[in-house]
Design a protein around this nucleic acid. Structure first.
Lengths: 231, 231
DNA sequence: ATATGACCAAATTTGTAATTCTGGTCAATA
DNA sequence: TATTGACCAGAATTACAAATTTGGTCATAT
């Protein structure tokens, strides 16, 4: 990795930590520079503005999330089933506080950035016709990895609900004896496995093939966004 | 119903509507009096303070919710299974905007009431050792209406997650083509039925018996709270 | 060529005095 | 006796100037 690239990574890492802890509003460019051990000017050699830095971080976190997801699936013996794939997406989501904040649109972290008229999230929502989750579930169903008698749109939405509440429920419903997150995710996986796997078991290999396909498309889309952002 | 009692109901109904629409902070006692068609003084003949009115409403909504739940179960042919019971709790929750706001601790509705040091919700949380949902799930498991190989605490928590996200996900994740709520609830019910019902089917009658038991306990607890509130 | 941090205009926050609003009371009324 | 609404003290909001902070720049240093 070039020295320049390495410094950019350091800046982004510092920014991620500060944004998660203090939020977009309370984190200043000076803070980021100090935390990353560079001068403020250096930040502006990498990013045109605070917002561009922030948006680069958003994209970067999404990429990291996608890669982590793929890794987990690859390492999972049952990785090709719909339930296992979904489960691993939850682990991936849960592994990054910043990504979790993005997913639940945490206003404490995203702050006034959310109010900007054409922020990253709005643009993304307007751009996509169908939710990524739905596309994924639909493909899995067509490939025989999800029972035909389930409505893919409904399943996709329930999956979003569970992901959302996995990272968001603590904010509003403090539960004294909440089970460990891992137990929750495994519980969800078991439920999904029983409820969604077609009779006779789904085709695990077909599932993995689909994932590669989606991953590739996703990488392309993120690449495009990264370019769009440079302008 | 006594004339006095009827007026109290009218006040509470008016308050519920205003609180849901404008929130606790922006709803004044004058507003409530006007909406209910009574004088402000009359409000204070029924309630010692705005907060007492509010808390009476909280308890009243919980009672209505519990009754609605029982009704739905009674009317449901499969009402005794765990999945059907849970499903009906979601319908009951979804049928009252105020109850939904309570469940998700919606700060737009509950406003500064939530900041009060010993508000209803804090008192309730401190009072109860185990979550109601867990008690319910555990009893159902002991009665043979939930597979033994599932952890009741985990299942209870996942049920809370789904309930929370059912009423809360719209606030942060606007989904252009979200399925109708009824389809979502039925989808959840189907998933739960497949995943939680023991081999050979659960004992539906035992389930209903348990519910009556819990309903009775719940009625008692709410009665106690109502008294505690009078002070 | 690269990197820095002093510097600045604009935005945000703070302090605070004036104003409005609101929960609660109670003398007057029906 | 039961009910009302004018009234009031304290709370909340507004207005706005002063002070501070912050995103971004660029002359200077390395």
């Amino acid at each position: 990795m070039s020295e320049n690239r390495e410094r950019q990574e350091r800046i982004l890492a510092a920014a991620a930590e500060l944004f998660v802890h203090y939020g977009y509003d309370k984190t200043t460019v000076d803070d980021i520079a100090r935390e990353a051990g560079v001068s403020k000017g250096a930040i502006y050699l990498h990013f045109k503005s605070k917002d561009e830095l922030f948006e680069t971080l958003l994209v970067s976190e999404m990429q990291t999330y996608a890669e982590k997801w793929l890794e987990l699936i690859d390492a999972d013996p049952k990785g090709g089933t719909l339930a296992a794939m979904y489960k691993n997406s939850l682990y991936a989501l849960n592994s990054s506080a910043f990504m979790a904040a993005m997913f639940k649109q945490d206003s404490r972290v995203l702050g006034n950035y959310l109010r900007k008229p054409d922020n990253f999230f709005r643009v993304m929502r307007d751009a996509q016709q169908e939710s990524e989750r739905y596309v994924f579930v639909k493909m899995m169903q067509d490939a025989g990895a999800l029972r035909k008698d389930m409505d893919a749109k409904v399943i996709a939405h329930i999956m979003d609900m569970l992901a959302y509440s996995l990272v968001g429920i603590d904010d509003v419903l403090p539960n004294q004896d909440k089970p460990p997150t891992e137990d929750i995710i495994e519980g969800i996986a078991e439920i999904m496995d029983r409820a969604l796997t077609p009779e006779g078991g789904g085709d695990s290999e077909a599932g993995k093939a689909i994932l590669q396909q989606i991953a590739e498309a996703s990488r392309q889309q993120l690449g495009i966004m990264k370019e769009a952002e440079q302008e």
